[in-house]
Amino acid sequence: MINRKDFTGGYVDLPFVCEYYDHIFSDLEDIQFYIDLASRSGGPVLELGSGTGRIMIPIARAGIKITGIDLSDRMISILRNKLKAEPDGTVSKVEILKNDIRGFDLGKSYPLVIVPFSTFQYLLEVPDQLSCLESCVKHLDDGGTFVLSVFNESISRLSDTSLYKEFDITPEFDMPDGRRVFRRFRYVEKDYTRQVEIKESVFYITHPDGRSERLVHKFGMRYFFQYELIHLCARAGLNVKTVYSDYNYKPFDAAFREGRMIIIAEK
C-alpha cells in the first residue's frame, strides 16, 4: 500500500530505497547536461530533490556553487557521507537544506533552478505542482533559466499491458557487506483520468549467508503531456523556450517511447 503522506515516493519512509538509489541510477546520462547549464549560468544553482548528490556533487566539482533541497533525512545523510570523500574546494560549493519542494522560501534567488530526473512526477495533484513551480519562480533571477525533466509516457507505452508483468530493469549489483541485489519492475495500475501510474520497484536480495529477501517499493507517479506542462509553467509565471526529448538536445517527440520531456523555461 502506498503511503500518501510520503509524497516523495518512499524516499522518506523506506530505508532500502535510499540505500540502493546510487546503484540503480548509476548510468543516467544527464550529469554533463546539468554541468553545462550550470557553467553557462555562472551559478549559484538551486536543485530541487538533490537526494544523494548525484547531480549536485559533479556541479560542485566543476567549481559552481549549488544549493540542494530535499525532504529525506536518509538521502541527505548519504549525501553528507559522500561529501566526506570530496576535497574542501568541492564541499565549500555545496549547501544542503531540508525542505519541501511543494512550497519553500530560501530568501534568495538563483540564475538557474533545476528539477532533475523525475522529482516533479511525485507531485500527483495540480495544487502541489503549481505551488512547487511558483516557489521555483520566486527563487529565480529575472531572466533566469528553469529546467524540469520528466519521463515521456508515450501513448504506445501507456497502452502497453505487458508492463504489468515484472521485467528486468537494472543489472545486478553488490553491496559493500556482500549482499547481491537484483531489481525488477512492473506497473500495478494506470489511472487514465488522474494521469497517475502506480508502479513497483522490486528488489531481490541474496545475503552472504545464502538467505534470500524480496523488498517492494510501491509508489505513484504523475505523467504529463507536453502542452499540459507548458500551461502549468505559464500559470506559474514561466515562459517555456524549448522542449527536448533527451540530454543531447533532441527536439521533443511525443512518440519517442523511451524519451524524456525536458522543459527549458525563463522567468
Rank of each mutant, 00 (worst) to 15 (best):
N99A: 15
A254D: 07
K250I: 01
M1E: 13
R61Q: 15
T90Y: 02
E266W: 00
I2W: 00
C18S: 15
K165A: 13
G237V: 08
S135L: 08
C18W: 03
D191M: 09
D191K: 12
K82V: 00
C18Y: 03
L14A: 01
G42P: 11
Y122T: 09
P208F: 00
Q121V: 02
I96V: 15
P176T: 07
G237F: 06
G143N: 11
E166T: 06
A236Q: 06
P15L: 10
T52N: 04
T119E: 11
T206S: 10
I24N: 12
Y110T: 04
K190P: 08
I78N: 01
I64C: 12
L163W: 07
R186Q: 14
G63E: 13
I55T: 10
D160Y: 08
G259T: 09
V45D: 08
G10T: 04
P171H: 09
D168M: 06
D160L: 14
I101H: 03
P127C: 09
D160I: 09
Q129S: 06
C18V: 15
A265V: 08
G9E: 00
I24W: 10
M75L: 14
I64S: 13
G143T: 06
H231S: 07
R260T: 07
I35D: 01
L133Y: 01
I69G: 02
R4K: 13
R211M: 02
P58A: 10
I66K: 09
S159A: 13
L148H: 07
L123Q: 03
Y223T: 05
L140I: 04
G10H: 08
L79F: 06
Q226I: 00
P15E: 12
Y227H: 06
K250C: 10
N99H: 02
V113N: 07
V115E: 02
Y164K: 15
A254E: 12
K82S: 00
I57K: 01
R157C: 04
L229C: 12
L123W: 09
F185I: 12
Y20C: 11
D27F: 04
L28M: 09
T170E: 05
V45S: 07
S159F: 05
S162V: 07
F151Q: 10
N239I: 11
E19G: 02
L112G: 11
I76S: 12
D142I: 09
R180P: 00
E258F: 14
Y192K: 15
E134W: 00
Y249M: 02
I205D: 04
K98N: 10
A255K: 15
E95Y: 03
M1F: 05
L14G: 03
N3L: 01
L232K: 10
P111Y: 04
L130Y: 04
F182P: 01
G220V: 02
E86S: 11
E189T: 07
K98C: 03
M175K: 13
A38T: 04
